[in-house]
Lab assay of single mutants.
Amino acid sequence: EPLWIRPDAPSRCTWQLGRPASESPHHHTAPAKSPKILPDILKKIGDTPMVRINKIGKKFGLKCELLAKCEFFNAGGSVKDRISLRMIEDAERDGTLKPGDTIIEPTSGNTGIGLALAAAVRGYRCIIVMPEKMSSEKVDVLRALGAEIVRTPTNARFDSPESHVGVAWRLKNEIPNSHILDQYRNASNPLAHYDTTADEILQQCDGKLDMLVASVGTGGTITGIARKLKEKCPGCRIIGVDPEGSILAEPEELNQTEQTTYEVEGIGYDFIPTVLDRTVVDKWFKSNDEEAFTFARMLIAQEGLLCGGSAGSTVAVAVKAAQELQEGQRCVVILPDSVRNYMTKFLSDRWMLQKGFLKEEDLTEKKPWWWHLRVQELGLSAPLTVLPTITCGHTIEILREKGFDQAPVVDEAGVILGMVTLGNMLSSLLAGKVQPSDQVGKVIYKQFKQIRLTDTLGRLSHILEMDHFALVVHEQIQYHSTGKSSQRQMVFGVVTAIDLLNFVAAQERDQK
């Protein structure tokens, strides 16, 4: 057995438009009618409502009807409940999964919650491996369901041993009777949507819809739904939504950006999952974080739909894509998950301010006199920076000697690579993860907040409520011999709460 199987392995699926269902090699399930009293909570997966979006479509000038398939009504709160249950049931049916076995899954959280929910009911041990950027709410729900959680670096490539995929496979090879159901490759993922989600949409719309818009992560949702719609409703256009920084969209030119990270969760990847059939997507749109969270908040405030950030991405694209539809036509959007997962993220004004998705003037509360002053007023001194090749031991000596707790790590040209902190280095040394002679590049981390000289002290204040420091950066445009230009970030300084307090105190003292 291989040590790991690539999540982007070539698909062996034989589905073709027009091929009889009787030739399918898979076990198919028909939607079942729910009894009045459910035998367990797993029976509350599927049969989610279709809700008309009344205000947002009109606000953006849509002539067509805009409908939302509300997947956050599933038992675990997301569309991923469907595939989690289906993968477990299919693994039980073919004898792969037996009582007492362990389920391991690399996930952005929602599939993990679905699997942990099913594992709690069915009696399996469950280990979820997820990147650090995923919300604390997801972690809390997983723990409450009895799952064990392993976190991995957000910026690790999918084929790196440190990625959530790599760590999951390492655990599988170490733990007896453990299984990775593997949402990236498992046919049960798109089949769950082909058999149930798509049929529900067709039934709820009486077979009449002209466009379907869905955000894409593993691709199982859009693949399964689109294949069924292509068979039953061939005139329906399928629109895929991919965040900026991901590479799922086609044509490839759409993916060209210097951005590699994004805040919206559960969609987009740096590889093409095996289950994603991009041939059934008629057109791709890219979405960005700001519009995703703005539209998610709009869905909550104006439509009462308590959905997550990827739902915002989907609707932001839908109001663009559906401009081509006329009166009497219908566009369906998939709202994948609930706001429950993001209470401390985009639902929080403070978080939105820190990330730059909300401006101070958007909030009406009274601010102190210094709130709208610029960061450049602080008069920061030149920063202490270190090269990635310097040793951890030497870096600790320098920081202690100069009285700093942290320093930016830059390359020879001064471009920011990340940050090192005294606390992080000492804990890594004590844990045996690094040696004093190791290069400081081994303990770089990139989960820090950046701020510009033109940003306000109010925004800085919000950042420092949650973080010990902020890195002050400025952009530099560099022209190359080819005539092309590129933008790079340079370090201007490091600012802490002490710097802000000293500035405010000094100004008030001078005024007296």
Rank of each mutant, 00 (worst) to 15 (best):
T260M: 15
P408A: 08
T314G: 12
K484R: 01
L358W: 05
T294C: 06
V491G: 11
I267R: 01
A249S: 04
G245M: 04
Q329M: 13
L305W: 01
D282S: 12
A497S: 14
L299F: 01
V281I: 05
T314M: 11
Q259N: 07
Q478N: 13
A506C: 09
L417H: 13
T314D: 01
Q450A: 09
Q354L: 10
A506I: 13
V494C: 15
E258C: 13
S437A: 14
F271I: 01
I463Y: 09
S310G: 01
F503A: 09
R374D: 01
T260Y: 12
D438R: 15
V386I: 12
D411H: 07
I451W: 01
I390R: 04
P273S: 01
A321S: 05
S287L: 12
L422E: 10
L384P: 12
G483F: 11
K433Y: 08
A292W: 03
V280M: 09
E291P: 01
S348K: 14
A407Y: 09
I416E: 03
V495F: 13
E263L: 08
T279N: 12
G393T: 15
T279A: 09
H474I: 03
T364C: 09
F295Y: 10
E263S: 06
K402V: 12
I247T: 12
Y445W: 05
E475G: 15
E327C: 14
M425F: 10
E258N: 13
E265A: 01
K449H: 01
E291T: 08
V494L: 12
L399W: 07
P243A: 01
E303G: 07
L384Y: 05
A321T: 10
Q476P: 13
P243H: 08
V275C: 06
T421S: 09
T496F: 12
G418W: 05
G493S: 13
V332G: 05
Q489P: 15
L363C: 14
T391H: 13
T314F: 03
V434L: 09
S461K: 05
G308M: 05
W284V: 01
D467I: 01
L378V: 06
A413N: 14
E263V: 06
Q259W: 07
L464I: 14
S461M: 13
G312Y: 01
Y479F: 11
K512C: 14
T364R: 09
R488H: 14
G483P: 15
L373K: 07
V434P: 11
K345R: 08
L248P: 03
R278N: 06
A322P: 01
I272A: 01
A413G: 11
S427Y: 11
E508L: 14
Y269I: 01
A505E: 14
T395A: 12
E365N: 01
E265V: 01
T294S: 09
G379D: 13
S287I: 11
Q447Y: 08
K345F: 01
K359G: 06
E324R: 01
G418D: 06
Q487W: 09
Q302L: 07
I272V: 10
I300S: 08
D337I: 01
T260V: 10
T261P: 15
I239R: 01
L430V: 09
Q329G: 11
I272M: 09
V332F: 01
W284I: 03
L429S: 09
A321R: 07
E397C: 07
P243M: 11
D499A: 06
L325F: 10
G268E: 05
A311V: 06
T482K: 05
F448V: 12
P383A: 07
K320A: 09
V491R: 01
S313T: 14
V440G: 09
E401A: 15
D349L: 11
L380S: 10
F271N: 01
Q450L: 12
I334V: 12
Y445I: 12
D405L: 03
V386Q: 07
L464G: 07
E258W: 10
A470E: 04
I498L: 10
G268L: 01
G308F: 01
T454R: 08
A249G: 12
K355G: 08
L429R: 14
R400Y: 15
G423V: 13
H474P: 05
A249V: 01
V332P: 05
K359W: 09
P368F: 08
I247V: 13
V420Y: 12
T454H: 14
Q329R: 10
M425V: 12
A316D: 09
L417S: 12
W284H: 01
L384S: 14
F293W: 01
T294M: 01
D362N: 01
I444K: 01
P336V: 03
R350L: 12
V332T: 05
A322L: 01
T454E: 09
V386N: 05
A497L: 01
K320V: 06
Q487I: 11
E365W: 14
D438S: 10
P436N: 01
L378N: 01
M343P: 01
S461D: 05
D467L: 07
C392W: 12
E465T: 01
R278F: 04
T260N: 05
T389Q: 01
S348M: 12
K320D: 01
F492D: 11
Q439Y: 12
F492R: 11
L363R: 08
L373P: 10
F404L: 12
I267V: 10
S287A: 15
M425L: 12
T261W: 08
I463T: 13
D282G: 14
R452P: 01
W370M: 06
G458D: 12
W351A: 01
T496W: 01
A505P: 01
M352W: 04
S486M: 14
E508G: 14
V495E: 01
Y445E: 01
I267K: 01
Y269R: 01
V281P: 10
K320H: 05
V280I: 04
M343L: 07
L306A: 07
T257I: 08
P408V: 05
P408E: 01
F492A: 15
E290W: 15
I300C: 07
L358G: 07
I444A: 11
L378I: 01
N341E: 04
G418I: 01
V280W: 10
H462D: 11
I477C: 07
G309F: 01
Q259R: 14
V440H: 06
G304M: 03
I239C: 01
E475M: 07
K402F: 08
P336L: 06
S427M: 01
E252H: 01
S427C: 09
T391P: 14
K286W: 01
V491E: 09
D337H: 01
G432C: 06
I416C: 12
A249L: 05
I396H: 14
P336F: 03
L325Y: 01
K449G: 06
S461L: 12
D438A: 01
T456I: 07
